[in-house]
């Protein structure tokens, strides 16, 4: 197992009037090369959960193992852990600070203690991976557009060459074009470099397309941990948690309720379209068969 979470609890503001239990006995195992989606209502504890994975938050109780080692053990090098587990925060463009794009992306590798040449090489590779062209390398990050800033910030984490990439709502506030581009880029990285991706998102549609495992967090507990297809069969329960299944799931359920034999487990619009067409042609052939029977 790459990452293992055992019995993790976390309480905010312990011992004060504002005490809140954010995570309640969470157990998780994350394997290499997985593409995991994490969903949950605002305040469900998902952001707290992911910040535990690279040792930014110390658990109130429970253990987190990375490659079998407890990251809160005495003498564990959590700084180097953070180069293995890269975390891209929500609105990561707010963390840009350098005078130009390339130097900003080099910040991570520089902290790893690499030479200047290596840093530059890593930074350029990361920038290429997120699709930032070379003529922007020397531009101030504050002059870029929102989407470009976001991609530069993601590159800042990618440049550390992590084995696990965690992204907290990376597409929030991006236009549809920008979000697909970013998500496709992440998927491409995972497919090509074999990194593990953990994606926190509110968009069920994105989860349906990209994730191969979906974790639903509700009130500090893990409510579901399964393939998106299986999780979405619980669309009624998801609604009770303030979430929803992809819109296509509802369309398919409605169609089935009206007597069309479609597969309600379809995840994407394409899958649904195929299933509907199949059901329609099936119905048509049945009708013609019936008609023929009558004629005979």
């Amino acid at each position: 197992m790459l990452i293992e979470i055992q019995d993790l609890c976390y309480t905010y503001g312990e011992g004060t009037v504002y005490e809140v239990m954010a995570l309640d006995h969470v157990n998780l195992k994350i394997g290499e090369g997985e593409f995991i989606g994490v969903i949950g209502h605002t305040g469900s504890g998902k952001s707290t959960l992911i910040q535990h994975l690279n040792g930014l938050i110390k658990p109130t109780s429970g253990r987190i193992l990375f490659e079998g080692k407890d990251i809160w053990e005495e003498g564990y090098d959590r700084r180097s852990l953070r180069t293995h587990v890269g975390l891209v925060f929500q609105y990561p463009e707010n963390q840009l600070f350098e005078t130009d794009v390339l130097t900003d992306v080099m910040f991570g590798p520089k902290n790893e203690g690499l030479t200047k040449e290596e840093c530059e090489q890593r930074a350029k590779m990361a920038l290429r991976q997120v699709g930032i062209s070379e003529d922007l390398y020397k531009v101030s990050p504050f002059e870029l557009s929102g989407g470009q800033k976001r991609r530069v910030a993601v590159a800042g984490v990618l440049a550390m060459d992590p084995e696990v990439l965690i992204l907290d709502e990376p597409t929030a506030g991006l236009d549809p074009g920008g979000r697909n581009e970013l998500l496709n880029q992440i998927k491409y990285l995972r497919d090509k470099r074999g990194i593990t991706v953990i994606l926190v998102s509110h968009s069920m549609e994105d989860m349906a397309v990209y994730a191969n495992r979906l974790i639903v967090v509700h009130e500090g507990k893990i409510a579901y941990d399964d393939t998106p297809r299986n999780v979405f069969t619980h669309h009624r329960e998801l609604e009770k948690m303030g979430l929803s299944a992809p819109q296509i799931t509802y369309v398919m359920h409605d169609l089935k309720a009206r007597g069309l034999e479609v597969d309600t487990r379809a995840l994407t619009v394409n899958e649904a379209a195929r299933s509907i067409l199949m059901a329609l042609s099936l119905r048509k052939s049945m009708k013609t068969a019936e008609a023929q029977e009558k004629q005979d």
């Binding site: 930014l56 925060f89 990561p92 910040f107 991570g108 902290n111």
Partner: peptide, 28 residues
């Protein structure tokens, strides 16, 4: 947290090093 996640170090080093380490925090 975001800068720590990128390997920034706010805790060790002498006065000058710590002051320099504040730049990635203060500018944003």
């Amino acid at each position: 947290k975001a800068q720590i996640a990128r390997g920034a170090d706010f805790e060790t080093g002498g006065f000058v090093k710590r002051m320099r380490a504040m730049i990635p925090l203060l500018v944003p």
